[in-house]
Simulated scan of single mutants.
Amino acid sequence: MSLAYAAVPLLAWLTAGSLKFALNSWLQRRLAFGGIGYGGCPSNHSAIVCSTATLVALREGVDHPAFGVAVTLAFIVMLDAGGLRRQVGLQARAINQLQAGDAMSVALRERMGHRRKEIVAGALVGALVACFAQAVAL
């Protein structure tokens, strides 16, 4: 097995996370360490799984069974990021509103899921990282 199948998703994760940090810092006009984590643009999860699927397609071909597995995993992760995790964030917001004024309560993180454009941006970042890695023969 090539080390690229472990290195490329890691590189995609680092790239997407760095872009997210830079974008949030620029928008907030301060270092946005609070924006690191779940949610935001681009989606780290989408970048990771799409970098893997793209790398498999480039190295093994789209007719290889591993590509089918990688694409299936990518769809599951991206649907989860835009669906279930987004709903968890909405529930956290509702719980935080119910707890407002309670000094003993700890606020839940509300930004959990992704919008479609954030998922697409993450998918593009992942695909570009895989193409770059393939071009430099990582």
Rank of each mutant, 00 (worst) to 15 (best):
Y38K: 12
L19F: 04
L3C: 00
L128I: 00
L3N: 15
D63S: 14
G40A: 00
F132M: 12
S2A: 13
W26C: 01
A74P: 01
R85H: 08
E110H: 08
F33V: 15
G39Y: 03
G122Y: 08
V125F: 01
R29V: 03
A127F: 04
S18H: 07
L108P: 06
L58H: 04
M104E: 13
L23K: 03
N44I: 07
A121V: 00
H114D: 00
V49F: 00
M1Y: 06
T15R: 01
E60A: 12
A123C: 11
G101K: 12
Q28Y: 12
T15H: 05
A100F: 10
L98Y: 12
L108T: 05
A107E: 13
M78I: 02
L73N: 10
A70H: 03
F67G: 03
D80Y: 07
S43R: 09
V136P: 01
H64D: 13
G17C: 06
H64Y: 02
G113E: 04
I36A: 10
R29L: 05
V49G: 03
S25H: 05
R115L: 11
G89C: 01
A100R: 15
A47P: 09
S18M: 08
G39I: 03
N24D: 15
L98N: 05
A107G: 10
T72A: 14
S25M: 03
Q134H: 15
M104N: 13
G89E: 04
I95Q: 12
L108D: 09
I36G: 00
A81W: 04
L58T: 02
R85S: 06
A94D: 11
Q134F: 15
G61D: 08
A32L: 03
L55Y: 10
Y5C: 03
N44T: 14
R86K: 13
G40P: 06
G40D: 01
W13L: 14
A137I: 13
R111G: 09
V136R: 08
A121Y: 04
T52P: 06
R86E: 09
G82H: 08
A81R: 06
A4I: 04
S43N: 00
S51L: 03
C50N: 08
R29C: 05
S25I: 05
H45Y: 05
V62P: 05
A121L: 03
H114C: 03
K117M: 14
C41R: 07
V88E: 05
W13C: 12
V136W: 07
L19D: 02
V8N: 06
G17Q: 11
S43D: 09
D80F: 00
N44L: 02
E60M: 15
F67I: 12
G34H: 13
R86D: 11
R85W: 10
A81I: 08
L31Q: 08
A121K: 00
K20A: 00
L128R: 01
L128V: 09
C41S: 11
R59G: 10
I48M: 07
Y38Q: 14
V120E: 03
L58G: 07
A53R: 01
R93N: 08
R116V: 14
A57Y: 02
G89H: 08
G83V: 09
D102G: 06
Y5K: 07
I48T: 10
W26K: 07
V71T: 10
G34M: 07
L79F: 15
G17A: 11
C41M: 15
M104V: 00
G61F: 01
W26H: 11
L108V: 00
R85G: 05
P65E: 12
T15Y: 01
